[in-house]
């Protein structure tokens, strides 16, 4: 696995701050999400409940996100990713499922501050009104020209996952959208 994250913790300071969140362990699991064996393996590993459609269940340092009806994204501390893949693979032996460590294929960003919701709303074709998009939802979408997944990870904080190869592009988008003086104040 890579020793450094895509942008080595790049930060854009401002009233709403954009930060590349460093190394994160991410595991893609595809299989039958209704399988009790699969559910037990995943929830046992992450220590959180199984997410329903478009949900993300997050604990202190692990999370499970529903990515499609046969796909989960499991987030763990970076150094635990390989071990988690081994644990899941062993637990799912005989199941029709695949487990892949995708940590090196992704970049993770945090957008935090009073206009964090608005920073994202400028970039994605998603209704981000607080009554429509709430904490607990994992939303895969398109951020300008590239795929991204977003969720609310704190009171004034949103998280964004994109492909590592477009990390600089996404950072630049977020930084520009968060620039002081560009607030719209819609929400």
């Amino acid at each position: 696995m890579s020793d450094v994250s895509a942008l080595i913790g790049a930060v854009a300071e401002g009233r709403t701050r954009v930060e590349e969140a460093g190394l994160a362990g991410m595991i893609t699991l595809r299989g039958d999400l209704s399988s009790s064996k699969l559910v037990a393996a995943v929830t046992g590993l992450a220590g959180v409940e199984m997410p329903g459609q478009r949900e993300i269940k997050a604990g202190d340092d692990k999370a499970i996100a529903w990515m499609s009806r046969d796909e989960l994204l499991i987030m763990v501390p970076h150094e635990e990713a390989d071990g988690a893949v081994a644990t899941l693979s062993a637990a799912l032996a005989g199941e029709h499922a695949t487990v892949a460590n995708v940590s090196d294929a992704r970049a993770l960003f945090r957008v935090e501050g009073p206009h964090a919701r608005e920073v994202l709303a400028k970039l994605v074709p998603v209704d981000l009104h607080p009554e429509s998009f709430r904490a607990g939802e994992m939303r895969r979408t398109r951020m300008a020209q590239v795929p991204a997944a977003i969720w609310q990870s704190g009171e004034d904080q949103f998280s964004v996952i994109c492909f590592r190869s477009v990390a600089q592009y996404v950072f630049d988008l977020l930084a520009l959208s968060a620039k002081d003086g560009s607030e719209v104040g819609y929400f």
Binding site: Q53, R54, S68, R69, P125, V126, R140, T141, R142
Partner: peptide, 12 residues
Amino acid sequence: PCCGVMADETEL
């Protein structure tokens, strides 16, 4: 119908 999102054309 798979994820329940009202998807904008540009997501499709």
